[in-house]
Design a protein around this nucleic acid. Structure first.
Length: 580
DNA sequence: CTTGAAAGCGCG
DNA sequence: AAAGCGCGCTTTCAAG
């Protein structure tokens, strides 16, 4: 095969008789070759073709195929994830005249089982056992070819097809990155984690027993409330006990308790913090989630409607700042941590081409820039105001500041105000690259219609107005959060390709020697919305930092060509992640 | 007994 | 001072 032109796409799928099929397509999507292999031969074949042509690999679902390739030591540069892209295209307002892609099909199947459960199979690349059980997207080669053709047609026919193509590439790169992040894991210092737990809770107790410092906190609360039997973990009972002590709170939540001055409050808040740490990230968490010095969360690209990632398992996106010091580089390695300063408002400034907002943020802290422009008096006011603008705040401090922002940043505010108005009407909004918000439920639309009839009850009208405003706040935020997520994905994708060109080093001596091949050079280890951590051999740390900055610049240019808006990073090189 | 909602708190 | 967006996870508690 392949005496003709080099393949641009290479589609992978389940072939006949338990074999795996590879089909080569040219730039126009025309078939130029195909072959079938035994599943065990796939890794070698992919590796060879990646070296020769570096085609864009097309497959049903990245975790299903790529986890196995990674396990076999093979990485690829680019892919097209049919499941992820189907979700985008099916709802995107940019897609026209492509009714086929909007029909309900097996490609709508959600990613519903954790990664580990989906890679069960008698042999490598034996998809039958797992796919039959999970009822997910089709893995057959014919289904993949047909769906790819539908998707390419939909993209070609789209308005602003070039933006949609960026989104398709970024989303698919996210799939690869998520699988690699899982394979690499986060370097985790169990001894440091245990030290933090012991400091806060006391030494690890026997199973079924509460830690000593929690027992002490609870005793103080019970004494201060004069209720020696009180069960602190039951909010209704705790609330009644607080009332008996004349602490007149409506709930047992932290922010409400802090407003009262009573001897029970301090130990109670301490107890709540301890309890949270123990149940969410205590010793049981270590036992379950950390193995051989790595915490391996399952990342779920596209798991949030806005395009942000979700996670499943161990709460990867909610690691408390208190535990950040447990992220520690291997011996002789460094953590290169970077986060974008005020990503969402910058994304808004860029997509709305708001010159004043771009100037306020140029090269520095955006909130300070708003103060220096004389729009508000303090950084805190600027921050609360901007967040209010993004989230639709109308009360309190943000409600007071937003009108001033509307005056000074008219283009930015017009964009989010317009998105809110569209949402309130039941309309659909889209991100910069073309991910669209879900349409309202039929019940929502019906309630709106019926509330406008002359004989509707006052309560019904009020409920309908409130739910319209709720939806307006969602669509207002959707365009900003979603566009910021697109920027972040583009950043990661550019960074990943840059790091892939770093020289591999010999595996570190000691416990962490095993692991995926790409983890033998500077590699991504953690991602959280606007923050990335690269785990790098010490001598590659500076170059990795440069790559992170260059990737951020590249993402800005790619999404917003010619825009003056910049995306400055806070970047540190450390052995241990700072507590912040 | 299981299941689902709500409360509460962690992250951006 | 604690609102306005998006999540995941643990626990309690009531309903089936």
């Amino acid at each position: 095969m392949s005496t003709g032109p080099s393949p641009v796409w290479c589609v992978v799928g389940r072939g006949t008789g338990g074999r795996t099929a590879l089909v080569d397509l040219d730039a126009q999507g025309e078939r130029i070759g195909s072959r079938e292999l035994e599943p065990a031969q796939l890794a070698d074949a992919v590796s060879r073709r990646e070296a020769e042509h570096s085609p864009r690999w097309v497959w049903s679902d990245t975790p299903t195929w790529y986890a196995r390739l990674l396990a076999a030591g093979v990485t690829v540069a680019r892919c097209h994830d049919l499941r992820l892209i189907h979700v985008i295209l099916r709802h995107s307002q940019l897609v026209r005249d492509a009714e086929e892609i909007r029909d309900a099909t097996a490609w709508d199947a959600p990613l519903d089982l954790p990664l580990e459960d989906r890679t069960v199979g008698a042999t490598l690349f034996d998809l039958d056992a797992s796919s039959a059980r999970r009822g997910g997207v089709p893995h057959d080669i014919d289904a993949a070819l047909a769906e790819l053709a539908r998707q390419l047609a939909a993209i070609d026919a789209a308005t602003a097809a070039s933006r949609l193509r960026l989104l398709v590439a970024a989303e698919s790169a996210g799939g690869l990155i998520a699988a690699e992040l899982h394979a690499a894991g986060i370097p985790w210092d169990v001894a440091e984690h245990d030290r933090i737990l012991t400091e806060s809770l006391g030494p690890r107790p026997a199973p079924g027993h509460p830690p000593s410092k929690m027992v002490a906190s609870a005793s103080e609360v019970r004494a201060a409330l004069g209720d020696p039997q009180l069960a602190l973990d039951s909010p209704p009972r705790l609330l009644r006990a607080l009332h008996r002590a004349e602490i007149d709170v409506e709930s047992t939540s932290k922010w409400e308790l802090t407003r009262y001055d009573h001897p029970a409050i301090e130990p109670l808040l301490r107890y709540k913090k301890q309890s949270r740490l123990l149940t969410a990230n205590g010793w049981a968490w270590i036992d379950e989630w950390v193995h051989e010095g790595r915490y391996r969360p399952v990342y779920v690209p596209g798991g949030v409607v806005t395009g942000r990632w979700a996670s499943s398992g161990g709460g990867a996106l909610q690691i408390p700042r208190q535990l950040r010091p447990a992220l520690r580089a291997d011996e002789g390695w460094r953590l290169v941590s970077a986060d974008v300063a005020q990503l969402e408002p910058r994304a808004l400034a860029a997509m709305s081409a708001d010159a004043a907002m771009a100037t306020a943020g140029a090269g520095k802290d955006l909130y300070s820039g708003i103060v220096e422009a004389g729009i508000v008096a303090s950084r805190q006011e600027a921050k609360v105001g901007v967040l209010g603008a993004l989230y639709g705040g109308t009360t309190g401090d943000s409600g007071r500041v937003v009108p001033r922002l509307r005056q000074n940043f008219p283009d930015a505010m017009a964009l989010v105000d317009g998105a809110a108005a569209t949402g309130e009407r039941g309309g659909t909004v889209s991100t910069w690259l073309g991910r669209s918000s879900p349409a309202p439920e039929t019940a929502w639309t019906q309630a709106q219609t019926s509330a406008y009839l002359p004989d509707s009850a006052a309560g019904e009208q009020e409920r309908a107005r409130r739910s319209a405003r709720d939806r307006g706040r969602f669509t207002r935020n959707f365009v900003v959060q979603g566009t910021a997520a697109e920027w972040a994905l583009s950043w990661l994708a550019a960074l990943r390709l840059a790091l892939a060109r770093f020289e591999p080093v010999a595996p570190a001596a000691g416990a962490h020697a095993s692991g995926p091949v790409f983890a033998r050079r500077a590699h991504l280890a953690f991602f959280l919305h606007d923050e990335v951590i690269v785990h790098a051999p010490a001598h590659q740390a500076d170059a990795a930092a440069t790559a992170i900055r260059e990737a951020a610049d590249a993402a800005g240019r790619l999404l917003f060509p010619g825009s003056p808006v910049d995306f400055p990073l806070d970047l540190t090189i450390t052995e241990r992640s700072p507590a912040k």
